[in-house]
Design a protein around this nucleic acid. Structure first.
Lengths: 336, 336
DNA sequence: CTGAAAGCGCTTACAG
DNA sequence: CTGAAAGCGCTTACAG
């Protein structure tokens, strides 16, 4: 039904081998033959069958982006994905990006990873928000199929991550320099990403380095990085009468915005009464009133880098596992 | 390197044809043989080669999601994508979703579509934000490869769209019922999607139906659906001394939020002085102060439906082109 | 109930 | 410089 390489061959009056060689720019072909073949390809609208090519080459020319999150739940994920797309687009969409959302079920994710590996369905994996079983990592390693993990840490894989310790440190230090003495931190529960832990450590080290004590009661936990949790957090802080003069939402801007919204409703002046610093710099952070001071993660660049590493590793240009660490930066607006 | 169907056959002591039949649940195979084969598959960790299967079956089991937007620029796109993912996940990821961002270059997009079709790289297309050339639509039609277009209108394809006329109408009608007499509308320039035009028509019809005139000077244009453009729009409205008592941002919530932010900065009370209604109900619309009254589009459901149609059309369960029209609804909060 | 054979559409040594 | 042949890993009639 669709023209094949043989149809092109017939049309051009050459063998299909020759057609294949023209397509692959083999220099042994004469210019004349080349032109003849190219004309035939144009005329009958020939495009190589992708599956046949993959089968014979033993690779899929595909990169799988795997995440457990239910359909793009976070800005982190979205921006990272932007980065992937951008890198690929800049390289003429040389590879196909396949999108896999697995949900939280670990077994399901592992099955998918095995299928991608053994079914030759992807030449590289970019993972976000999880760490595969060590057994799976070993199998990928054996088969020489690269895995790039974003915001995680594991053996045998390439890592792209942000320096969360540094992010926690500079946010806290900034508040201290502004004269704040009693800074609460809102932190996520510990997860696969280690980010919460590292930010917390940055926070407490910054306190210590400036002669302030880490107070356990100033640590507020949050579970889902939600706006609503921020509103609750500030109420909790007030109820406990912690008398804080600043809040660092290491659990993201979303939570920070909840804090701001609720605080203003309660008549608290920001930043005069309480200063707020967020984390992430999501697209809406500068539109809230007052605009949010926050730690920006270079998620877009991280996505690009992840893709670049995946491509280079696939193509054999990288042999050893790499670890790219991105420095976050403080974006100063009006909330602190 | 990776085990093939022949390795399974050898291990199980049967022919590879039998293995294939077991994999495809052919009932002619005895239970005993079945078990033997299944055991062998488990033991040597066999997964079918995806490319080989695609080649022989003449299909890729892949749905391509194509959009010209640079890396997920809009919430509309993100939510739609959520819907696709969700539908697929609920169906055990039966199909693979491939993600293609083409950028604004039309030729590039057409090339991609031809390649997907003739290279047998996708069994169906879901497109957002563009209409392919009629020639391409015809070729897809001839080859019986379904295209589902979201938020567009074209021949030969399945359509999933929202009723933008209705959305424009109910938003305007609501403002009128609230006693507003001089309602400005912020509209996007006309685009491929027709949405701006239809919303505008809904707006002006609602005015007429309630004895109000459509005034040309009350129509403000915006280009990129941006927050910043909303800020500019309200300044423009004030400078022109239009004396409006309400603004309907048919160009989306993002713009509406710009209007609100700038208006408050200028000391305008919302909704008392000027009421604002947005369009889309993006995730942040309820977090702004005052929370935004807006027209919600069921984008998530639209994405799900688009995927469902694509699947059913691929599988021959739908023959004729369908058109699914979703009704938007007014979400009443505090800005109007 | 199972297997041998043909074939999907390519690419890649190899021969001439 | 070009072509015939083998083969990638499957599936699907067909034969027994």
């Amino acid at each position: 039904m669709r023209p094949t390489i043989k149809d092109v061959a017939k049309k051009a009056g050459v063998s299909h081998t020759t057609v294949s060689m023209v397509i692959h720019n083999d220099k042994r072909i004469t210019e004349e033959t080349r032109q003849k073949v190219l004309r035939a390809i144009k005329e009958i609208n020939y495009y190589p069958n992708y599956s046949a090519r993959s089968l014979i080459q033993g690779k899929s020319n595909t990169i799988a982006f795997v995440t457990p999150f239910f359909y793009f739940s976070s800005f982190f994920e979205i921006y990272t994905m932007h980065g992937l797309e951008k890198y690929n687009l800049d390289n003429k969409n040389k590879y196909v990006i396949q999108q896999f959302t697995t949900g939280p079920d670990e077994k399901r994710r592992n099955d998918l990873l095995l299928e991608l590996l053994y079914g030759r369905r992807a030449d590289a994996i970019i993972g976000l928000g999880f760490v595969p079983d060590i057994k799976i990592l070993e199998e990928y390693r054996n088969k020489n199929v690269p895995i790039v993990l974003i915001d995680a840490k594991a053996k045998y894989v390439h890592i792209v991550r942000a320096d969360n310790y540094y992010g926690g440190y500079i946010a806290t230090e900034y508040l201290i320099k502004k004269g704040k003495k009693n800074i609460a931190i809102i932190s996520a529960q510990l997860s696969a990403s280690l980010a919460p832990e590292q930010r917390l450590k940055g926070y407490s080290d910054a306190l210590k380095a400036n002669g302030l004590d880490f107070k356990k009661e100033n640590l507020i936990f949050v579970e889902h990085f939600l706006f609503e949790e921020g509103r609750q957090a500030i109420r909790e802080i007030l109820e406990k009468k912690l008398n804080v003069d600043a809040i660092f939402s290491a659990a993201g801007d979303w939570v920070a915005m909840g804090v701001i919204t609720e605080a203003r409703k309660l008549g608290i002046k920001i930043p005069q009464d309480i200063s707020i610093v967020g984390y992430d710099d999501i697209i809406v952070s500068e539109t809230i009133i007052p605009p949010l001071t926050t730690v920006r993660q270079p998620t877009f660049d991280m996505g690009k880098k992840a893709f670049e590493i995946a491509v280079n590793a696939m193509e054999g240009k990288i042999i050893k596992e790499t670890e790219e660490i991105f420095k976050p930066e403080l974006v100063i607006r009006e909330s602190a």
